[in-house]
Design a protein around this nucleic acid. Structure first.
Lengths: 249, 249
DNA sequence: CGGTCGCTTCGGCCGCGATCGAAGCATTCG
DNA sequence: CGAATGCTTCGATCGCGGCCGAAGCGACCG
């Protein structure tokens, strides 16, 4: 009656959809992957803390994630640094977060930890949350990017603006196949509106980091806006950080 | 030592990332979801066949998928028709397929079933496979759409072309927030290159169906090009269907 | 009406895999 | 060098969940 031997799929490749999904479907592993969603490389010990399980268990999980090519590892002394294997993995995780966040407004207990995430956080290698969305809105309002159909097309004025801001990005005509897109739109998990990803999103974030406008939290993806950042975002982007931090009334 | 009670996540919403992923992470359920990926609504019995498990087991799985809001159900007589809850679910599934398909070129046994899928198939509500990619290529080559940064921006000539082809699509300026994007790009799972999705992709597909250029297969997402389609694709899109069907040499 | 079909519910079986304790390797430090 | 740290491997436990048989329930058919 069974068409295939148990556990086998109609797959053409090494790993199957179900296998990949199952890797993400364990609570401990999902915590590990979520912790890695901020783009940093973390040690096995740190990941064990995030995953909330013992070191042995974590090691086992990391082995499976490695085998499934969702993460990569890099040895450094007696530490092993793990990171997400690719932006695509991060994208799938973000998409899953969107799926899981939508649904009826069941009582959602928003803790202080969560509030910080909603205000400003990293999404793999770019900014998200109210801050990230505000940045995207401003860039769109000034027509530095044209938000359309899930992508942001950077205009000439946008390229100028970015250059003035201290970011050097280049349009690469041609082989857009394998190259990373200049300016993707990433649907914000908490705001349900797009923020800027791709190379532009990433360099905006690192530039803000370099200028000390934002600092990363130690144990979460939350990002804190510094005093310099308050001033900078207001001057350059006309963004009221108090509104961003405090959230909608 | 454990920071949360076992099984609980740092979640803010009803369902968690891990729960959603776990739903997709079971082989039977993944088969069910994959079967629904062609956009059709299928009965529980048909899904049981696709999932390759008994009716009871399927019913249990469908209940879980319903609870997780990945699918919806519609009663009709003594049948129950299930379909994917949203295009977003389909997108996540497609992304997962991409993740699972990439990896080292381990021997991939390509069966005839698989060959058909690679030639032409549906991807939720639009065309994919070599045919879908060829369509996107042609639209890009003639500058009917500009492929950039993960989105296809439809040009004026593109709008004209679509109108002449018998498709009426409208740019909706404004509230692009909730509305479905006009022309998304969807990374093709088998070709690893973009094909057209969004409203344009969907209406291209249905128009081809209406004109009898393609017909759906009964039990798979594969799509067959008819004789009329051979002529039509050649005349209108300059697409050589023999190349599409036979695949790369 | 009984009979069939489509689907779900119940109950029990069983296996996979997540988990941790203990031990085993590396690396660094004193 | 021995001790501590970071991480992995081994082994054993055990609970969750996928699975099916049997039964229940509703819809359609003759």
């Amino acid at each position: 009656m069974r068409r295939y031997p148990r556990g086998m799929m109609t797959a053409a490749s090494g790993t199957t959809l179900a296998e990949v999904a199952a890797l993400m479907g364990d609570v401990a592993r999902a915590n590990i992957l979520s912790a890695l969603m901020d783009g940093r490389a973390l040690t096995a010990g740190e990941l064990a803390w995030h995953a909330n399980v013992s070191a042995q268990t974590t090691s086992s999980h990391l082995g499976k994630l490695l085998e499934g090519r969702l993460i990569t590892v890099e040895r450094q002394g007696r530490h092993r640094y793990y990171r997400l294997a690719s932006p695509q993995v991060a994208q799938v995780l973000e998409n899953l977060m969107i799926l899981s966040s939508q649904g009826p407004k069941r009582h959602r207990p928003i803790g202080p930890r969560d509030a910080a995430l909603r205000a400003a956080r990293t999404c793999y290698d770019h900014l998200a949350g109210r801050l990230g969305v505000a940045l995207a809105d401003m860039m769109a309002a000034r027509e530095h990017v044209v938000l359309q159909d899930g992508a942001g097309v950077v205009t000439d004025s946008g390229m100028r603006f970015l250059r003035d801001f201290g970011i050097k990005v280049e349009r690469d005509h041609g082989s857009a196949q394998t190259a990373r897109p200049l300016c993707r739109l990433c649907l914000d998990w908490s705001e349900r509106r797009p923020h800027l990803a791709g190379r532009v999103g990433a360099s905006l974030y690192t530039r803000c980091l370099d200028m000390g406008w934002v600092v990363r939290s130690k144990d979460s993806r939350a990002v804190k806006i510094t005093d310099a950042g308050q001033a900078g975002f207001a001057a350059t982007f006309q963004i009221s950080c108090s509104a961003v931090v405090e959230g909608p009334s």
